Amino acid sequence: MDTELTDVELLRAHVAGDAEAFGLLFARHRDRLWAVALRTCGDPETAADGLQDAMIAAFRRADSFRGDARVTTWLHRVVVNSCLDRLRSAQVRRTDPLPDDLDDAEHLVRTTVDPDPGTDPAHTYDRVERRAAVLEALGRLTPEQRAAVVLVDMEGYSVAEVAEILECAEGTVKSRCSRARARLSVLLADLLPDGEQRHRPSAAPERNRPTGTDVGSGTRRGPPPAATTLD
C-alpha cells in the first residue's frame, strides 16, 4: 500500500476494507500515542492496556470519524479517553491542597521532563531517575489534570487543540493545567538546583481550597508497543 497516503486517506481505506491501512496509520503515530498513554497513566502496564483498548476502539469505530478534526486529534482523543477510563475505575486517592507560590511551575515541569540534550552522558542515570520521578508525580494528579498537562506541557499541543481532544472548554484546560503545575511544582521541587527550588511546601497558613480525587492504575493484558521511552 502507498505509505504516502494522508491520515484521512488511510482511515478511509481502512473503512473501505483495506487490511493494511489501519496498521500503517497506527505505525505512523505509534510513538507519540504511546508517550501520551504512558504519561497519562504514569505506569507502563496500565498505559499498554489503555493504548491497546484505544486502538481496538479506533479500529472498530473508524467509520464514526466525521472529518471535522484531524485524524491525529481523533486518535489522541480515543487514547486519552481510554486511559482516563482505566484511571477512573481504579482506587481513588486523596489529593492535597495546592501551594501558594506558583510562579515557575510550568518551567519546572518542562525542564524536568525534557532535560538539556547536551548534558554529559555520565548523567544519563540521573536523567532516568528524574523521568521516573515525573511519572510518579503525574500519578498523583487527578486524571483530568494529568491529561491536560501532558498534552499541553509535554506533548506541545496548544490549549485550543487540547480542548478539542478532551472535548471541553479552553478555560477548563487552562484551569486543569494550572492546578497540575502547582501540584507538580511541589512534588518535583527536589529535582531542581538549589537556586530554582522555589516551590517547597511552607508553614504558611492553610487556606480553604477545593479538593478533588486521584486515581490509581489497572492491570496489563498485553505487551506495550515497541517504543516505550519518554521523549
Score class of each variant (00 low, 15 high):
167 E>C: 12
179 R>E: 06
226 A>E: 07
16 A>V: 08
19 A>N: 12
181 R>I: 00
31 D>S: 14
154 M>Y: 01
6 T>L: 10
116 D>P: 10
147 A>V: 06
34 W>T: 12
87 L>K: 08
118 G>P: 07
115 P>L: 08
97 P>K: 02
166 L>D: 06
230 L>D: 10
25 L>I: 01
226 A>C: 00
101 D>T: 05
158 S>C: 11
167 E>H: 10
164 E>P: 07
92 V>K: 03
153 D>T: 07
75 L>N: 08
157 Y>W: 09
218 G>M: 06
111 T>H: 03
185 S>V: 01
211 T>A: 10
79 V>W: 09
63 D>Q: 03
14 H>C: 13
33 L>Q: 04
168 C>Q: 11
68 D>W: 06
60 R>M: 09
172 T>K: 10
91 Q>C: 08
41 C>Q: 05
138 L>C: 06
114 D>H: 14
57 A>R: 14
137 A>W: 06
204 A>G: 06
224 P>L: 15
53 D>H: 12
13 A>F: 01
46 T>E: 11
153 D>C: 09
217 S>Y: 15
164 E>V: 12
193 P>W: 03
110 R>V: 11
116 D>H: 05
145 Q>P: 12
54 A>H: 06
188 L>H: 03
109 V>E: 04
112 T>Y: 15
228 T>D: 07
123 H>P: 07
95 T>L: 13
30 R>Y: 11
62 A>G: 11
214 D>T: 01
93 R>V: 12
5 L>N: 02
51 L>D: 15
126 D>Y: 01
12 R>E: 14
51 L>I: 13
16 A>Y: 04
29 H>M: 05
210 P>I: 09
117 P>G: 09
105 A>V: 08
72 T>Y: 08
32 R>D: 10
186 V>N: 03
219 T>S: 00
163 A>K: 11
78 V>I: 15
47 A>E: 03
109 V>N: 12
33 L>D: 05
220 R>D: 11
115 P>D: 10
100 D>E: 10
169 A>E: 13
209 R>Q: 14
214 D>K: 00
36 V>I: 14
132 A>D: 00
50 G>A: 13
126 D>S: 12
114 D>Q: 14
37 A>S: 15
5 L>D: 00
191 L>Y: 00
4 E>T: 05
53 D>C: 12
99 P>H: 01
186 V>R: 04
143 P>L: 00
5 L>E: 02
178 S>I: 01
